[in-house]
Design a protein around this nucleic acid. Structure first.
Length: 471
RNA sequence: GCGCCCUUCGUCUAUCGGUUAGGACAUCAGGUUUUCAACCUGGAAAGAGGGGUUCGAUUCCCCUAGGGCGUACCA
């Protein structure tokens, strides 16, 4: 049986949309912190807003987290399944005189805010039902239940990232604990659920910083010990403004679809706001070993696709050839509709070492390797077509003849043959290599031609040369 | 409006009073070269502004500016 662990964290998204990159990072930090302390990491779906929550969004969150490699412990905790418990707590608060019913209409509330704004005061509920006799309750109006918040003094949040944050209680109003339809609000349910789940550390976006003050007051009223708070800065778009759809694809799945590997993604996200000296490429094992709250920066970070690409490229070139070629095969199967033969799959794997170091994403890698598995004759594009002028074609015909005499098809023998060919023809090596590349790839960029010839094999190589020589 | 938070190269960041302010990405130049990339070498590039505290401030304090977040019967 598991011993009670020292650290329990949670990721608590509301299922109202895709899991975006900021949420992914929050989840990563919670996961890392829990793993570092050999504690537990829970997933809680905050679906108390029934109108906005959708099952699709829940799926997207689960899929996104799994893809990122952030496995949670235990069952998914759904807030909506604990409504009864939330209601009980509200009732006990009511019984203790720490909450009360409020019959204000939305219009009344709106006007209150306007007046406050006009007077230069904080916009908040003025507490008019706080001490009013329940007998005054208008008939036929379902009340909300409000928290009787302290009206003077201050609330201090001892934040592990932001430091001590002090907020005057005058700034905070009597928040709603339960809606008029009997559904608990976020502010109440987080506190109850975090307590019930035994959460020890709340790591979340700093958009929740002031909420922490409100929640602290509820913890105090309930005489519960609040967890440690760690509010991490939000991620901004590349222009420094708030992250929005205009800054490009934000759903975590979009990055998957663009061809980033989860490891690279995690590494990038980790470095966005957290650092360990000058280290840049940090394995997950090292991240778990090193991760701490103290090294999280306080300022918001901007999304930088260039950096992501660079990290992605670094991970690609370190990735195992078999794993990589299996992924590429899958991409071909799925996106391009190819059914690759065993021979072609082997060709991809053999070629992988040369290709993986020059691509930034899986998609780019697949694109770069496509010519390897294309059936003859190859389509010839732009620059390559230009290379293949009449002189070049004639040269290729001669070259084919020369190469056909090479019996043992090894890199060394091929190179010797081609260099010899160029020399006897009085051609600069490049004059041979470029048209040859065009014939072999149909394009202008590729790894070295000797690698190409070797990977393609004797028959395929000669065939491709012949195709272009004849045309 | 009120409140809270933030502010080092273009970007991500290191620095925990004394450094030629370091690294990475991007960028520029050169090298290598059969293309592209990779790779190697080198360059340019920063403490928002103003006051303090101190022998000495990027570092501590205050003000200003800029940015962010909150201020819902959303989470």
């Amino acid at each position: 049986m598991p011993v009670s662990s020292p650290v329990i964290t949670r990721f608590a998204p509301s299922p109202t949309g895709m899991l975006h990159i900021g949420g992914g990072r929050t989840a990563l930090f919670n996961w890392l912190f829990a793993r570092h302390h050999k504690g537990q990491f829970f997933l809680r779906i905050e679906d108390t807003d029934r109108a906005r929550s959708t099952p699709e969004a829940v799926d997207a969150i689960l899929t996104g987290l799994k893809w990122l490699g952030l496995e949670w412990d235990g069952e998914v905790y759904r807030q909506s399944e604990h409504l009864e418990r939330h209601g009980e707590i509200v009732q006990s608060l009511l019984n203790l005189g720490l909450a009360y019913r409020c019959y204000c209409s939305p219009e009344e509330l709106a006007q209150m805010r306007e007046t406050a704004k006009a007077e230069g005061k904080p916009q908040k509920y003025d507490g008019r039902w706080r001490n009013r006799d329940p007998k005054d309750a208008p008939a036929g109006i379902a009340p909300v239940i409000r928290f009787k918040a302290p009206q003077s003094g201050e609330t201090v949040i001892r934040d592990r990232v932001q430091g001590d944050v002090t907020i005057a209680n005058e700034q905070l109003d009597d928040l709603i604990l339960m809606r008029s339809d009997g559904a608990p609000t976020y502010m109440l349910s987080v506190v109850v659920d975090d307590h019930d789940m035994g959460i020890t550390h709340i790591i979340r976006g700093d958009d929740h910083l002031t909420n922490a003050a409100r929640q602290s007051q509820i913890y105090a009223a309930l005489e519960w010990t609040p967890p440690a708070f760690a509010h991490i800065p939000l991620i901004h778009g590349s222009d420094g403004a708030k992250l929005s759809k205009r800054h490009g694809a934000l759903a975590i799945e979009a990055y998957r679809d663009m061809g980033y590997m989860p490891d690279a993604m995690r590494n990038y996200l980790l470095r966005l706001g957290w650092s360990h000296g000058d280290d840049e490429i940090i394995s997950t094992e090292q991240a778990i070993e090193w991760f701490n709250l103290e090294s999280i920066g306080k300022g918001p970070a901007r999304l930088d696709l260039d950096k992501l690409n660079s990290i992605s490229g670094a991970y690609l070139s370190r990735e195992d050839d078999s794993r990589l070629s299996a992924i590429i095969v899958a991409i071909f199967d799925k996106k391009m509709g190819y059914r690759l033969s065993a021979e072609l799959k082997e060709r991809l794997k053999t070629a992988m070492p040369e290709f993986k170091q020059r691509a930034k994403t899986l998609n780019e890698l697949a694109e770069n390797m496509e010519f390897l598995v294309l059936p003859r004759p190859l389509p010839v594009t732009g620059k390559a077509a230009k290379q293949l002028n009449t002189d070049a074609k004639r040269m290729l015909a001669d070259l084919e003849t020369a190469l056909a005499t090479v019996q043992t098809w090894t890199q060394e023998s091929i190179e010797a043959a081609i260099r010899d060919f160029a020399e006897t023809k009085g051609l600069k090596f490049g004059k041979v290599a470029q048209p040859l590349r065009a014939a072999l790839t149909g394009g202008a960029a590729s790894p070295g031609i000797f690698d190409l010839l070797t990977v393609l094999g004797r028959e395929e190589s000669l065939g491709r040369i012949a195709d272009q020589a004849a045309a």
